[in-house]
């Protein structure tokens, strides 16, 4: 899988206009301003009603109302809490499992078709069974987030461990590293480029799984807010919720994944080769 670089890092034929950060920021904002302007203009000119598509001001009003009524905080809180619990559970289960599997070449070769099968199924396809086992509510949603991330993360951890050069492990062993220390000193950091990729893919699946599961199985959260607004044909809230979902993912990427990559994989010169 390719990790998509931010435009500043790509080495393409398109050179960004100089290293000035200010102009970078401007170029990031301009398209959004244009989009909003076109949106406003089109709705105004065609006279589209809010029943079909909301005006910019409707969305802002919906956002303000959601914030004022406390709905925004409630839905946001519910979604983020589920995402966090599911993601943490996935990280603490999948990485040890992946390392255990990956450190035995035979075991990982044997199980990798089953793992790939599970990655394809992970997340949304489990919603019916999750609601059957755990009922409608938080537990089913958390299960879906965990499940969506678990297999992708396990699979990529296994790959990462397999990609550690044999010499690196030998070097550690020849300096007296034994047992659990090998895991901590060599296997985990060595597999990290691939683990980060798995985290990115897994979070993507998990995020989508969260929204879908919330639509289907709960009475709080951003997905539920979307679903409720749809049944009331409240397009302002629908678009507002979509914007929130998009912004949250971008924040997750910028504040969590990107710094993690910068501090580890990139700092160590181990950028994953796609």
């Amino acid at each position: 899988m390719t990790t998509i670089d931010s435009p500043a890092r790509t080495v393409g034929r398109v050179r960004r206009p100089g290293p000035r950060r200010g102009s970078e920021a401007v170029w990031f904002v301009v398209p959004f301003v244009l989009l909003v302007a076109i949106w406003w203009l089109v709705v105004e000119v065609t006279g589209t009603t809010a029943r079909t598509f909301p005006q910019v001001t409707d969305v802002i009003a919906a956002l303000a109302e959601m914030a004022a009524s406390g709905d925004l905080a409630r839905h946001l809180g519910a979604s983020l809490q589920r995402m966090l619990i599911g993601a943490v559970l996935a990280v603490v289960t999948a990485i040890p499992f992946g390392i255990a599997l990956g450190s035995s070449p035979r075991l990982s070769a044997f199980f990798s078709p089953l793992l790939r099968f599970s990655v394809a199924l992970a997340g949304i396809a489990w919603i019916p069974i999750a609601t059957l086992w755990l009922g409608y509510g938080d537990r089913a949603v958390i299960f879906i987030v965990w499940n969506a991330m678990f297999f992708a993360l396990t699979y990529n951890t296994v790959l990462g461990v397999q990609q550690i050069p044999v010499q690196t492990v030998r070097a550690a062993r020849s300096m007296g590293t034994r047992g659990p220390r090998i895991v901590w000193e060599v296997l985990l950091p060595g597999a990290l480029p691939s683990i980060v990729t798995g985290l990115r893919i897994g979070l993507g699946y998990g995020w989508r799984g969260l929204v879908a599961a919330e639509i289907i199985a709960t009475n709080a959260g951003l997905g539920y807010a979307l679903f409720l607004a749809q049944s009331q044909f409240d397009t302002g809230v629908i678009i507002a919720s979509m914007v929130i979902i998009g912004v949250l993912w971008l924040l997750m990427d910028r504040l969590l994944l990107a710094p993690l990559e910068r501090r580890t994989v990139e700092r160590w010169g181990m950028k994953a080769v796609s």
Binding site: Q167, T168, R170, A171, V186
Partner: peptide, 13 residues
Amino acid sequence: RGVVFQSHALFPW
């Protein structure tokens, strides 16, 4: 027995 490898096998992290 300390080993110096051809591929240097340093820990990149």
